[in-house]
Design a protein around this nucleic acid. Structure first.
Lengths: 225, 225
DNA sequence: GTCTATACTCTGATAGAC
DNA sequence: GTCTATCAGAGTATAGAC
């Protein structure tokens, strides 16, 4: 996922720069960029504020670094989902799971996009571009599922279904975070989200003797700790 | 929706206080409380900043005033939806439409709740309480629809369906706002949102000769201006 | 009720020594 | 690369005259 540091230094688990990025992601996800100060980031990493500004001359560049990382991860996902690189075909469930992990890992981008776009208009367009790209991926996957006779979706239902899939798979994390008060994710929460999206497809599933593509059973409400 | 001012003054369309609340709601919806300064609010209303602080001694009290207004409107909706007050039974579509207008009118509350909870922890619990209340309303409506043989939802699908209904009907506005770049809503956008929620129910509708409960036809993508 | 003037705090950012 | 000041600006809030 991340490079190993240009000098191959493995002492403190990556160079200062990487540690800053990692810590910032955690803090941003927790409270949003606007409610995290540079002083706090420096303190979390264990360095001085002046040092932080040596690595990132503006707070904005920190956000951009995180978005670039996300974009790269998302593109990797897209290629894998469309069956580009590796020959190993993954299940639809695995792909969905990967996407969910990604959305959760960078959830501040989805949640606080408006605030970000306010201070950094340069981010709005790339974000929508990525958004459209991912939507395209989901659409391609759905059409493949239709071809493979896994689901049967009437033509007029495809568009609305795609939009709902996008909404639920984008905002499930925010929903759990805000409405349920969950701020730390475990496997159960991820399962919950997967289950929600699965249920969007369920009515269209073509009955089959073998195991289902999506996991639609034995799922419960996540614990609202 | 709002009172007429304690002196019945109708000169400038409500007293200064009401005009402040109204202007603030507009600005908050547009950019979020963190990106709107008290100076800007005063300027928008056409009064001095000092005067603004006469009516609202803190910025926080402004947010609270708006939330209180929303809570009241939401409760009015809940009572009407559950068939409490007026005897006139409204269609499910009308109720959904009312709720959508409400979510849109106060969309900053849904979108920026995390940032708000950060500065105002007192708001988190009331928000979740309201959230649960509305969820209860939707659940009651769904069970009534099942009783009236309008829909047929398998027992195990009820919970996930309710959650998806809540997610889509809560975040449709945010989705249009952020992903599509729409910041002004017209009837078409509201229709689009209604259509998305309708499609969640569609697979469970019991076929009938008469007109459907939900509008499921001739809807298109909203114009992304 | 409304305005003028001003205080205070927080935070992003820079300069320069080590 | 890292730390020690230190600044400049923005933004909330108050005091007091009108």
């Amino acid at each position: 996922m991340s490079t190993a540091g240009k000098h191959g230094r493995l002492r403190t688990r990556g160079g200062t720069r990487e540690r800053v990025v990692e810590a910032t992601l955690g803090l941003f996800n927790e409270r949003g960029p606007d409610r995290v100060t540079t002083a706090e980031i420096a303190r979390t990493v264990g360095i001085n504020e002046g040092n932080l500004y040596y690595h990132f001359r503006t707070k904005e560049s920190l956000v951009l670094a995180l978005f670039a990382r996300f974009e790269a991860d998302a593109e990797t996902f897209a290629v894998r989902a469309l069956g580009g690189g590796s020959g190993e075909a993954r299940t639809y469930e695995d792909l969905l799971s990967d996407w969910f992990r990604l959305v959760w890992a960078y959830r501040f981008l989805f949640r606080d996009l408006l605030a970000l776009a306010g201070t950094m208009p340069a981010l709005a367009t790339p974000f929508r571009k990525m958004s459209a790209r991912m939507r395209g991926v989901v659409e391609a996957l759905l059409r493949r599922m239709i071809e493979e006779h896994i689901v049967n979706v009437p033509k007029d239902d495809i568009e609305p279904l795609l939009a709902n899939v996008w909404i639920v798979s984008t905002y499930w994390a925010v929903y759990l975070n805000l409405q349920k008060g969950i701020d730390e994710m475990d496997a159960g929460h991820l399962d919950w989200g997967l289950n929600q999206v699965s249920h969007l497809f369920k009515p269209f599933l073509i009955p089959t003797g073998s195991a289902d593509v999506f996991p639609l059973s034995t799922r419960r409400e996540p614990d609202s700790t």
